[in-house]
Structure formats: C-alpha cells, structure tokens
Computed example of a mutant assay.
Amino acid sequence: MTDFATDDADQRRRSIGARRNPDTQEAILEAAEALVFEEGIAGFSIEAVAKRARAGKPTIYKWWPGKTALLLDVYHRRKPANVHMDTGSVEGDVLAFLTGVFVHWGDTGAGQVFRFIVAEAQRDETAAASLAEYSAERRLQGSALFERGVARGELARDVDCGLAADVLAGFIWHRLLTGRIERDPDKLRVVARQMVRGLMAPGR
C-alpha cells in the first residue's frame, strides 16, 4: 500500500526548491511534532521549534514559509496511509476514508491541529497559500478514488471526479469545524451509501 502522506510531503519539498539536510529536516519535524502533541497549539511557534531542534530560524523559514506549512507536514507524519484504501468498490472506499479520517482526527489530536490550520488560513495569506496547496493535493487524491469507480464501470462515465472529491472533503471539513466528528460505523455507512448512490452507472 502506498504511503500517500509521505509522497505528498516529498512533492511539496521538491516544489520549494531548497536542498535539505535530511538529519536537520528530521530533527525539525520531530521537534515540531513533539511540541504540538506535548504543549498543544498554544505552545507551538517557529522559535520554540528552532530551540528544541537546535536549528536556526532562517533554516526553518527557508524550508517552510510559515508555521502553517510546518504544521501540515507534522499533520502528514501522523496521518495513516490506509485512509485511501482500494476496497474494490467506491462505497467501500468512501466508508474506509470517512472511518480512517474521523478516527485520526478524534484519537490523535490531529483534528485540533487541522482546525487551527483552517482558522489561520482565514487571517494569514501565507497560511492560506499553504492550505490551498494542501487542498489541491488532497483533491487529486480524492479524485483517484472516484476515477477507480469510473474505470471499473461502477460509476457513470460523466461523473466529475474532482467535484465528487470536493463533496467528500466538504463533508469531513464541515463535521470537524462544527465539532461533530462521527464515529458510529452504521451512520458512516449510510453517509457513504448516500454520497455514492447518485453517481452510480445506470443499472447498478
């Protein structure tokens, strides 16, 4: 199974264009992760990360344009790869995604991290750009889930897979931001069925 989180993070790093020392990079990410999950968002800052990692602030800012970009990489380090499983059906894939994301957000503190990232993006242009880049990557990944269904003949050929991915993302973001993370498997099964039913190919 592909570790999409690692692949996406690597792609972002290549796009920055700055050569990174792997040991220093790992020290910064470990320090950032430890701060988030020991001190919470209130204790997280580039200064605190630099001190803990014994790295210079200019080095951190060279590789991450702001703390939101760094937080997104921390978020990726803890995100399970199996939220994007190929179960053999679109409904099964959607259910696996919903279950995995909500467990991750609810059990690890990652939900609070992501809520903070979304809030920062409303007031800071650098944070907004980092979130937009992240969202574009997630849209491609979510689209692939529905593209598999089209390729199998399970979904109608004219389904807009990007739009379907937006609908799926919109649902989980709305639940996170309104404090309604769903954990009941029966209710999630209903959500997955309802989301997919309107996309089915005729006769299925």
Rank of each mutant, 00 (worst) to 15 (best):
W105E: 07
A42G: 11
R148G: 05
Q25S: 12
A201V: 12
A192H: 15
I181K: 00
K57S: 10
A53H: 13
A151L: 04
S15W: 09
F37N: 04
L155P: 10
F4A: 04
R123A: 11
A164R: 08
R193I: 04
L177I: 14
K79F: 14
D8I: 02
T99M: 04
T59K: 03
R54I: 10
K57W: 15
T108E: 12
H76V: 01
E125A: 14
R12W: 08
G203T: 15
F102E: 02
V118Y: 02
T178V: 03
P185G: 00
L98N: 00
R189V: 00
E91W: 15
L163T: 13
L98K: 01
V196M: 00
T59M: 00
L35K: 09
A156W: 01
R115C: 10
T87H: 07
T59R: 01
K57Q: 14
V49L: 05
R183L: 01
T99R: 01
F114W: 09
A165C: 07
T87I: 00
E137P: 02
A5V: 11
S89N: 10
L199E: 03
V150A: 03
A129Y: 11
G43S: 08
L29Y: 01
A81V: 13
A128G: 10
I28W: 12
V103A: 12
M1H: 06
A81H: 01
L98Y: 03
V167S: 03
E125S: 15
G109S: 12
F97C: 03
L98Q: 00
V94T: 02
V90G: 02
I41G: 05
K57A: 06
E125V: 01
R189F: 02
A136I: 05
R193F: 09
V190L: 02
I117R: 06
A144E: 03
R139V: 02
D107E: 06
L29P: 05
A32E: 11
S135W: 05
I181H: 01
F146R: 08
A55V: 14
R115P: 10
D3T: 15
C161D: 04
A53N: 08
E154W: 11
G198C: 00
D10S: 08
A132Y: 05
V94H: 08
R193L: 09
A69T: 10
A127D: 09
E47C: 05
G88R: 15
A48G: 06
L35V: 03
G43Q: 13
K187V: 01
W63M: 13
T178Q: 09
T87K: 11
G149S: 09
V167P: 09
D93N: 11
R123F: 10
A128C: 07
I60R: 00
R139A: 00
A129E: 02
F37T: 07
W64Q: 12
G170H: 02
P58E: 01
I117G: 13
R13G: 13
S143Y: 06
T2Q: 06
T6K: 11
E39P: 00
A96D: 06
A34D: 10
E154C: 07
A127V: 11
F4S: 11
Q25A: 14
G179I: 06
C161E: 12
R197L: 14
R77Q: 04
T24A: 12
A9G: 15
D107K: 00
W173D: 05
F97D: 04
V103L: 01
G88M: 09
G88P: 13
V191Y: 10
R54S: 03
R180I: 05
